[in-house]
C-alpha cells in the first residue's frame, strides 16, 4: 500500500546541508499492517513519519501511496492527500480546543463533506469503540490526557483513512492509559482493517505491534 524507495531528506542551515536525516530509506507497508518505527531518539523516526504523512517535503526518492507518488506533490496536493488518505495521532493530542469531543471526532469527516447523519453515526460508533461515548459533549480541556488521546485517535479513525500515522501517541500517558490506548488501537486495526504505523520507543507500543522497523542514523537497519 505504501512503498518508500531510496528516500533521502536533509535538514538545512541556510543553504548548507546540516544533517542527512533520512538515508536511502526503502521499505513497504501492506494494507492492514500494525507496524512500528523504532530506534533511539534523533534516529529519524518522526522525520520519516512526516515524509510518509505528506507533512514534509523530501530531497530525493519516492513515496508511493497505492499507485500515486506523493513525495513530489506541492503543498495543496499534500493537504488533500492528508485529508482524504491519512489519519494522524500526535504526541500532544492536538485537539481543537473550541470544539467539543463530538465535533473534534467528526471534524475531518466534516471537511471531507460527509453528511451530518453519517458523521453522527460514525462518531458514536468510534467513540463507543474507544469508550468515550459518554464524553461526546465535553470540551477537550475538561478531559484527562488519556481521554484526549483517545479522542485524537477517534478523530483519525472516523473517516476510515488508508493509514494512520501515530507519532509517540503514548509519550504523555501513564502506563495504564498507554496500555489501554494500544489495546484499543489494536482492536481498531483488526476491526476496521486500517493500517497503523507508529513512531515510538514505548515498551507498550513495542509489545503490541506485529512488525518493527528499526532505524539508526536516518537509515533502516531492520525491517
Amino acid at each position: 500500500m505504501i512503498e518508500i524507495k531510496n528516500l533521502n531528506k536533509y535538514f538545512y542551515k541556510g543553504e548548507e546541508r546540516e544533517l542527512h536525516a533520512l538515508r536511502d530509506v526503502n521499505f513497504e507497508i501492506e494494507k492492514g499492517e500494525f507496524a512500528l518505527l523504532s530506534g533511539p531518539s534523533g534516529c529519524g523516526k518522526t522525520t520519516l513519519l512526516n515524509a510518509i504523512g505528506a507533512l514534509d517535503s523530501i530531497d530525493s526518492g519516492e513515496i508511493w501511496l497505492e499507485k500515486r507518488e506523493i513525495g513530489t506533490l506541492d503543498e495543496d496536493e499534500r493537504t488533500k492527500i492528508r485529508l482524504n488518505e491519512m489519519g494522524f495521532v500526535f504526541q500532544a493530542y492536538n485537539l481543537i480546543p473550541v470544539l467539543n469531543v463530538e465535533e473534534n471526532i467528526g471534524f475531518i469527516m466534516k471537511l471531507r463533506g460527509f453528511k451530518d447523519e453519517e458523521i453522527k453515526k460514525r462518531v458514536l460508533e468510534v467513540a463507543t469503540l474507544l469508550e468515550i461515548q459518554n464524553k461526546l459533549h465535553a470540551m477537550p480541556a475538561t478531559l484527562s490526557g488519556g481521554e484526549q488521546q483517545r479522542v485524537a485517535v477517534a478523530r483519525a479513525v472516523a473517516p476510515k483513512p488508508k493509514i494512520i500515522l501515530a507519532d509517540e501517541p503514548t509519550a504523555n500517558l501513564d502506563s495504564k492509559n498507554s496500555k489501554a490506548l494500544m489495546d484499543m488501537m489494536k482492536s481498531l486495526n483488526e476491526k476496521e482493517g486500517i493500517s497503523i504505523l507508529f513512531a515510538s520507543h514505548d515498551e507498550y507500543v513495542m509489545a503490541s505491534v506485529r512488525r518493527t522497523i528499526k532505524m539508526n542514523d536516518g537509515a533502516i537497519v531492520e525491517s
Binding site: 504523512g53 492536538n94 481543537i96 471537511l111
Partner: peptide
C-alpha cells in the same frame, strides 16, 4: 498558531 498547525496537518486547506 498550534491549533492552525493541527488543522493544516490533518488536511484543512489554507482557504478554509
Amino acid at each position: 498558531i498550534r491549533e492552525f498547525g493541527i488543522m493544516r496537518s490533518i488536511g484543512m486547506s489554507y482557504s478554509l
